[in-house]
C-alpha cells in the first residue's frame, strides 16, 4: 500500500526533527568556529576554540569526569539495578510495594535528590558525617563535596543509588521469562542464587544492553547533580561536559567555546555509543543462544 496522503503523517515529525536536531547540529558546527558573545557580531576564528579547549584544564577535567560518570553508570548503577531486580524477582513478601518505593525517587526529580544529598554529604550538618560521629568513626568524616580529590565521586552517589528506572526495565524483562526454566532447575536442585546467575541473568542480556545505553546517554547529559551539589568545584574538580557548556555560555558569554565543547560532547557520545554497541554485539556473538 502506498499513498501520497501518508506524507501528511510524516511531515510534522520531520519538521520537528529539522528544528530541533538538523538545524541545531549545523548551528553548533557553525558557532564552534566563531568567537562570539551572543550579542555582537561573530568573528570567524577557525579551529581556535578547539585549540583553546584542549589546553584548558577545566575542559580536560570535564572530559575525564564525564567518563567517570559513564563508568559509574555502567559498572555500578546498572549492576546495582540488576541486583535489586533479582532480589525483587524472587517475589519476597510485599515486592510490589518495594518496587513502588524504589521507583519513587525517579518521579521526585533529580534536582530534589541533588538538593537532598547536598545536605546528606554536608561537612558539618550532614547525615553521613554525623552518623560516622555517632558510631565513633569520627576520623572517617570528610568534607565529601568540597575535597577536590573526591568531589566528583561524592556527587555521583545519589545517581549510583537511585536505580528505580533501571530496576523496572530489568524486572519487565524478567517477567517475560518462562516459568518452566525455573521449575526444571528446581527439580535439578538448583538454589535460587544459581537460578539467578544461570537462568535469569543470561536471559535479561538485552535489558542489560538497554540499561547501559540509557545510562550512558543520561551520564553524557548529566547536569543536576554537579550543578547543585558542587557547582563543579572546588577548583573545577567535579565539573562535567554539561556544566562546562552551560558555564561558558551563561556565565562567561563565550558562545563559540561553549559550542565547541558541545560538539566535543556529541563526538564523545558517538564514540561511547559505538563502543557500547560494539561490545554488546561482540558479547552476543560469543555466546549464541
Amino acid at each position: 500500500m502506498t499513498s501520497r496522503q501518508i506524507y501528511l503523517y510524516l511531515v510534522p515529525a520531520l519538521l520537528f526533527t529539522v528544528v530541533f536536531f538538523i538545524f541545531p547540529l549545523a548551528y553548533v558546527l557553525f558557532v564552534s568556529l566563531q568567537e562570539w558573545d551572543g550579542l555582537s557580531g561573530m568573528n570567524f576564528v577557525g579551529l581556535d576554540n578547539f585549540r583553546y579547549l584542549f589546553e584548558d584544564a577545566a575542559f580536560k577535567t570535564a572530559m575525564v569526569n564525564t567518563m567517570y560518570w559513564i563508568l559509574a553508570g555502567t559498572l555500578l548503577h546498572t549492576p546495582l539495578g540488576l541486583l535489586l531486580a533479582l532480589l525483587l524477582f524472587s517475589k519476597p513478601k510485599g515486592w510490589k510495594w518495594l518496587r513502588t518505593l524504589f521507583f519513587l525517587p525517579n518521579v521526585i526529580s533529580t534536582t530534589a535528590l541533588a538538593f537532598l544529598w547536598y545536605f546528606v554529604l554536608h561537612v558539618s550538618l550532614g547525615l553521613v558525617n554525623n552518623s560516622l560521629k555517632g558510631v565513633g568513626l569520627e576520623s572517617w568524616a570528610r568534607p565529601w563535596l568540597s575535597d577536590p580529590s573526591m568531589s566528583v565521586f561524592a556527587s555521583m552517589i545519589p545517581f549510583v543509588l537511585y536505580i528505580g528506572f533501571t530496576m523496572v526495565i530489568f524486572l519487565t524483562q524478567m517477567s517475560t521469562i518462562s516459568q518452566e526454566f525455573y521449575e526444571a532447575a528446581e527439580i535439578d536442585g538448583a538454589t535460587r542464587a544459581q537460578m539467578d546467575w544461570h537462568i535469569t541473568v543470561p536471559l535479561v542480556k538485552s535489558a542489560i544492553g538497554i540499561n547501559i545505553i540509557f545510562n550512558t546517554a543520561y551520564c553524557l547529559r548529566m547536569f543536576e547533580y554537579p550543578l547543585l551539589m558542587t557547582g563543579g568545584g572546588p577548583a573545577d574538580s567535579s565539573i562535567n561536559m554539561s556544566l562546562f557548556i552551560y558555564r561558558e555560555m551563561i556565565s562567561a558569554n563565550r558562545y563559540g567555546i561553549s559550542m565547541a565543547a558541545g560538539l566535543m560532547t556529541i563526538v564523545m557520545g558517538t564514540i561511547m555509543m559505538g563502543i557500547v554497541f560494539g561490545s554488546l554485539r561482540l558479547s552476543e556473538r560469543r555466546r549464541p543462544r
Binding site: L10, A13, L14, T17, V19, F20, F21, I22, F23, P24, L25, Y27, V28, V31, G38, A217, L220, R221, F223, M241, S242, I245, Y246, M249, Y255, S258, M259, A261, G262, L263, T265, I266, M268, G269, T270, M273
Partner: peptide, 24 residues
C-alpha cells in the same frame, strides 16, 4: 532513510544544543 533522519537524535546529547535552542 526517513526513519534514520527522524530517530538519529536519540544518540545526541542534547545539552550540546543549548545555544541553538536558546535562539530558536
Amino acid at each position: 532513510g526517513w526513519l534514520l533522519i527522524i530517530t538519529f537524535g536519540i544518540f545526541i546529547p542534547t545539552n550540546a544544543f543549548i545555544v541553538p535552542y536558546y535562539f530558536i
